[in-house]
Design a protein around this nucleic acid. Sequence first.
RNA 1: GCGCGGGUAGCCAAGUGGCCAACGGCGCAGCGCUUAGGACGCUGUCUCAUAGGAGUCCGCAGGUUCGAAUCCUGUCCCGCGCACCA
Length: 970
Amino acid sequence: MSYDPQDLEARWRERWAASGRYEADPDGRDPEESTFVTVPYPYPSGGMHIGHARTYTVPDVYARYRRQQGDNVLFPIAWHVTGTPIVGAVERLKKGDEGQIDSLQNAFGVPEADLKNLETPMGFARYFIEEAECSYKSGMQQLGLSIDWRREFTTTDERYQRFITWQYETLKDRGLLEKGLHPVKFCTEQETPVTTHDLLEGEDVEYQEYTLVKFASSSFEAGGASGGGGDTDTIFPMATLRPETVRGVTNAYVDPDGQYVIATVDDERWIVSVEAAEKLEYQAHEVSIETELTGEGIVGETVENPITGEDVLILPADFVDTDSGSGVVMSVPAHSPDDYLALQEAKADTGRLEAYGIDPAQVEAIEPVPILSIEGYGEIPAKDAVESAGIDASSDPELKTVTQELYTSEFHRGELDDAYGEYGGEVVEDVREDLKDHYQSQGAFGAMYDFPEPVISRAGGKVVVAYQDTWFLRYNDEAWQAKASRAVANLDAIPENTREQYDHTVDWLEEWPCIRNYGLGTALPWDQDFIIEPLSDSTIYMSYYTIAHRLQEIPVEELTPEFFDSLLLGAEGNETALELREEWDYWYPIDYRCSANDLISNHLTFFLYHHAELFEEPKWPQGITVMGMGLLEGEKMSSSKGHVELPNDAIAEYGADTVRFFLLNSSEPWQDFDWRAEEVGSTRNQLERFWNRAEEVIDGPAGERDLEQVDRWLLARLQETVADVTAAMENFETRTASQTAFYRFEEHLKWYRRRADLERPGARWTLRTVLETRLRLLAPFIPFMANELHERLTGEPAEDVPWPDPVPEFQNDAVIAEEGLVTDLVADVRDIVDVTDTDPEIIRVYVAAGWKNDVFDTVVESAVDQGGNGGGPNQGAVMGQVMQNEALREKGNAVNALVGDLVSFARERDGDTLETLAAVDEQAVYDDASAFLEREFDATVQVLAEDDDPEDPADKARHAQPFRPAIHLE
RNA sequence: GCGCGGGUAGCCAAGUGGCCAACGGCGCAGCGCUUAGGACGCUGUCUCAUAGGAGUCCGCAGGUUCGAAUCCUGUCCCGCGCACCA
């Protein structure tokens, strides 16, 4: 029967479904023998692609492996629909957004007729969960994932919402949830917070906190008249990202044509741009506008620096953007190349100054004021930077680079002047925050948030930073943080180098706003206008899996907080819940969570936090394996560009075993993988060849256990393979494991087929034994094929028989060493044949004389004495000992040369290998292989001993060394 | 900038002190098989070499060592994450 994956795989899928093969319940097995493995539930905002396929196959392989090891294994799945992406996608679809329709049709092959089913959020979700051809459920089933499907749910299910409600009420009761104002991206058009997904422009732009330096005027009045303001100061807040330059301000700029307002901000009188006033209002300031005026009305004013008390002049400048910061900027020409050039240009344009009623002489007198010193730059760093780069106009495109360089250098290396008092002599990087906070508390500085670039929402509205009343999780709570750190320390972090990233995240996390005011999800229990956001409702849901199917039996109303207290915390009270708790207790803790490496800094760390808080230490997660991402033909996959590979297409073309094998064998889980059609095709060919060879073995005679050297060699290799694969599986090294069981063993078989007479009963027996063991090792990776072949070979599927252990009676280092001598000999002969371009009739192999082996023994003793402690055997010591033998002493130079060679030979091998070799009877090995060698080279092979005074036409015998026989070709 | 990872032959990629001219795959070349078929098998694929050899090589530059792709120092380049988002 030729390899037909479609037929074969369909049969096994049916069989698994019909028998409920992977439905797991607590049974007689010890909870210690239970394995609970999870993977983030998919977010069905689109179809499943090949990257997802690997994500879900990694835990499947581990689950299958643990089952063969005898564990009771639970591998569940559910569907995450909380949040905004699905809602957003539906809205775009309904609006007829072409990009959205294109992505659905081209990337995921959604038929025109199906589009109308996607016009409600849950319709959309259901479609990609299970209705579409490229749905997650269909993909998972086709891949043969060993999931317990009874436990699936979605995060909008009532019962799940009851569970989340309990979680958040509990956290609130424990004081880990707090209410407060928090800056968020906010669409002014829709009056709603927005996420990256909702942005049309500026997706990558992050908001920044600008410091507002409160310059003041005691005499300012709109319209130019002064003196009427009485004793109320007017504040000119100047936005800057470099608050430490406050002592270097020489003047200020406004846009003379820009619109400004005089407004009461909180209790002060401020002048800012119209846009800034709006932003301040969004940022929880009381703003009431008194008057509007153009920038021209401010130009020429003099304002007082709140720190130095010096007066500075406000100049007109076109480069000022009223929609950035406060619309009033301070100028620090000594440290800002932009400001330096702008000042020069202002000085030069006397006509313009006069037009605004400013005395050019007053501007001419303005000189840069340096406030810090930095190695590598002169007294006025900005001047230096501009001049050495040859820039003389602010329009020069080089200016940006030069500015960036200077800012970076000053930040990391600039030392503030002594005028800064306690901050004098300190490096900017170390004190900027303190300095800012210090002046802010004195009232000299304020703050506002803004974007450095325009940000526009998909609704077309301008996006600003707004303070929103928000509930947040207190991830920076010391006690909670300490528990999370302990959870990290307890964790089996795979790969190990991710541990540092978890620690780093725990240190860095602050409050996490955990609610949103739109999207799908669970309502905040005490304020139904909000929902709990997606990363916050997915932290302990793994515990829900343990009882998900059982909860269906319980009326929703009964799922009260008290119920979950009993279920999850073990509180007395609810008998039903306490009974279910036994199942939770059986499966928990999670053995391994398989997730993506980019989730370490949020989801995975939250997951640890919440477990650490809500459960006892023994129930904390045992391990996390992170996974890399997938590339398609060397490039990132992108559903919007249609650059995706769908599992159902791949499975239809290659079969699920090939897809699985490729995904797990092309890289380790945490490395990125690259789906290349050419290589997948070659994987398919390799599997087909394996299938064909397996069938020959299965259909051929069973043979009998009558073993020769080569058979023992192959069986010894098999034991090594079993040990190596098992070790790799324990560490989730799917690539190493499958590579070892499959490709590396194929290499051994290649040699075996060359070397052995395969018709012998002993060989048939060996091949069957090897096949049976390999099928068990490969069953987690290619379950369809491996189970089928194993069943045909033995009557039972591979998944129903135990994982193999190395069989001691077949472990055999000596036979591996001996076979190595034969491979070496073949390679040497071939080398000589190639170099000399001859076709030998006779091959003479001379085995080294006895005395040479005696010398070798001495070398080995010396090597073992050294205990592998660097350096290996000692040439001098060996010579000393060898030379005590009179017979050897006579050979003098020959002995010396031999010892040299053998010492370096020994240095390259460990003690065990040397001792194994020392025990080998070389002549017997070559004799045994001579028939093979004759076949291999189509020549007569004579194995001769140097000691026996053999026929030696070319005087080669004397070159023989232990494990390196002399060779003569004729 | 901060954190993590990485730079190996035409491409992908293993290797983290000696068994390394460096696993494996793809590609390419030759041979075999064959209705010359994008199948399979064997061989080769840094340079030189008519006896198993020699030289050069693992981003770049130094260093440690009897010995370095592997350890140390410096340097250049690339990828990912940096938050309220799945």
